[in-house]
Every structure is written in structure tokens, then in C-alpha cells.
């Protein structure tokens, strides 16, 4: 599904990704962990098409296409979804309007008929229940005045509606209390299927108790320095990131 080869990227003159290699197969969930500043969010941003990151070397192939050649909206329509670490507040655009426009853009691309207002409401009702979303949030401007938890739930709610094939969760757990974390994890798990993959970017192991990954990768200074199964996350929790760095220095 996704093949990242020797990916190097920078912001301005600062190189942040220094050669990432990662293969995500259909149906797999990969966790990307690492200390602050290791390049986790940059990796997520590059995959979603953030303009401020400049790719200087390497390739990303998604479903056989050159992902880096696509505009952000084309990536979204091809089934890539980025759950933002900091969801954006957009005054004046109501949530329901926005999501309907997004869903229909994706459906149109897939050759499916666009949904009218009734069909759309019927579709989102069930998803709102899944994410324990207050219906009133739908008629409010996107993320405006939402609490931190509401914003993160809104991200996963959008994901549930758009049904991506590759979900990228950028520190979706940060700032969530345990109840909100469970709700968010439920939403993600409900989407898990043999056809879908996910990259879960997180600083802490906690989220991975609820979204259990198939693989865990540790990012440090722009490179993947360790890869393993879910037990690697527990080991990190135990020993801290210092353990990885010390091990690297020794090597």
C-alpha cells in the first residue's frame, strides 16, 4: 500500500527527515514513536502534502502511484486521511457543510453518486454516535470553540465519515483524558479492516494500549532507529527514549 524509500525532507534550510524507509502493507497498523523534534509530525505532514515541507530526496509510492506528485486534495480523494495534531478552527464554515463538501468530493472521485442533504444526515448520524459527538457541534463552525477533546473527536469523526484507506494519526492522543482517549481509539478500531491501514504517530505508549499496532518504529533525529512489534512500545515506556539514544551512541 505505502512504500517510503530514503525520504529526506526539510523546512527552510533545516533537514528534518534524514532518510526514512518504511513499508506499510494493506491491513497493517504501524505506530511511529519518538521524542519531540524527532520528525514524527514532519513525516505525517509530508505524506499529507503540507507545502512547507520540501522533499529533497527519496520517494513515496502509494497504491502504485507517486504520492509526492499529488496535491493534498488528490491524496485525500485517493484515500489518505491525516488526523491533525492541531485541528484548525475555521470561523464561518459550518461543520456539516464542510464535511458534506469533503465527502462528495471523495465520492465523486471514486465514481460514486454524491449524497444529498438527507442522505448525508442519515450517514453521519450513526458515526456521531460512534464518536459520542454532540449533534449541536455539526451546525457550529469547524472546530471553533471546541474543547481540545472535541477537536480530536471531530478529527476521528471526519475519518469515520470519509472512510480512508490509509489513516495517519498525528499525536491524536495528546491532551486527551482517558475517557476521550477510549472514544477516539474506538473510532479508529471500528475502521480497522483488512482493506485499511494506519500510521499512528504518538509520543506515548498509552494510546497503543487501545489501538494495538502490528509494528512499532522509533524515530530519532530524522531516522527510524528501531523497529519491532507492539512489545517495543512497552519497552520504550519502561526505559524512556534515553535508552534508544544511549544504545545508538554505544553502537
Amino acid at each position: 500500500m505505502l512504500e517510503i524509500k530514503n525520504l529526506r525532507a526539510r523546512v527552510g534550510n533545516k533537514e528534518i527527515l534524514k532518510g526514512i524507509d518504511l513499508v506499510v502493507k494493506t491491513g497493517e497498523v504501524h505506530a511511529v514513536m519518538g521524542p519531540n523534534g524527532s520528525g514524527k509530525s514532519t513525516l505525517a505532514g509530508v505524506l499529507a502534502g503540507r507545502a512547507e515541507y520540501e522533499v529533497i530526496e527519496g520517494s513515496v509510492t502509494y497504491d502504485g502511484h507517486d504520492l509526492l506528485a499529488l496535491e493534498p486534495e488528490e491524496r485525500a480523494r485517493e484515500g489518505i486521511f491525516l488526523a491533525f495534531q492541531y485541528p484548525v478552527e475555521i470561523p464561518g464554515v459550518n461543520n456539516a457543510y464542510f464535511l458534506k463538501a469533503a465527502l462528495n468530493a471523495v465520492r465523486k472521485h471514486r465514481g460514486e453518486p454524491e449524497l444529498d442533504a438527507m442522505e448525508f444526515m442519515a450517514l453521519i448520524r450513526g458515526k456521531m454516535k460512534l464518536l459520542d459527538m454532540d449533534q449541536a457541534l455539526m451546525s457550529r463552525p469547524i472546530n471553533e470553540g471546541f474543547s481540545g477533546g472535541e477537536k480530536k473527536r471531530n478529527e476521528i469523526f471526519q475519518m469515520a465519515v470519509l472512510e480512508p484507506t490509509l489513516a495517519i494519526l498525528d499525536e491524536t492522543d495528546s491532551g486527551l483524558d482517558i475517557d476521550a482517549l477510549k472514544v477516539v481509539a474506538n473510532g479508529v478500531n471500528a475502521l480497522r479492516s483488512p482493506e485499511r491501514s494506519a500510521i499512528v504517530v504518538t509520543h506515548y505508549q498509552r494510546l497503543l494500549n487501545y489501538i494495538v499496532p502490528d509494528y512499532v518504529h522509533v524515530l530519532s533525529e530524522g531516522r527510524i532507529v528501531r523497529s519491532g512489534g507492539k512489545e517495543l512500545a512497552l519497552e520504550l515506556e519502561d526505559k524512556g527514549y534515553g535508552w534508544i539514544e544511549t544504545a545508538l551512541e554505544r553502537a
Binding site: 502534502g49 485525500a76 480523494r77 475555521i90
Partner: peptide, 17 residues
């Protein structure tokens, strides 16, 4: 970028804003 990352094209995103 937020709107585009959800599949809304650049022209539509600009017009919406």
C-alpha cells in the same frame, strides 16, 4: 490546507473561506 486535506479542491477551498 485543512480543507484540501479532506479532499476539497483548492478553488473550492478558497471560495469557502
Amino acid at each position: 490546507f485543512y480543507l484540501r486535506a479532506r479532499g476539497i479542491g483548492l478553488d473550492d477551498a478558497r471560495s469557502l473561506l
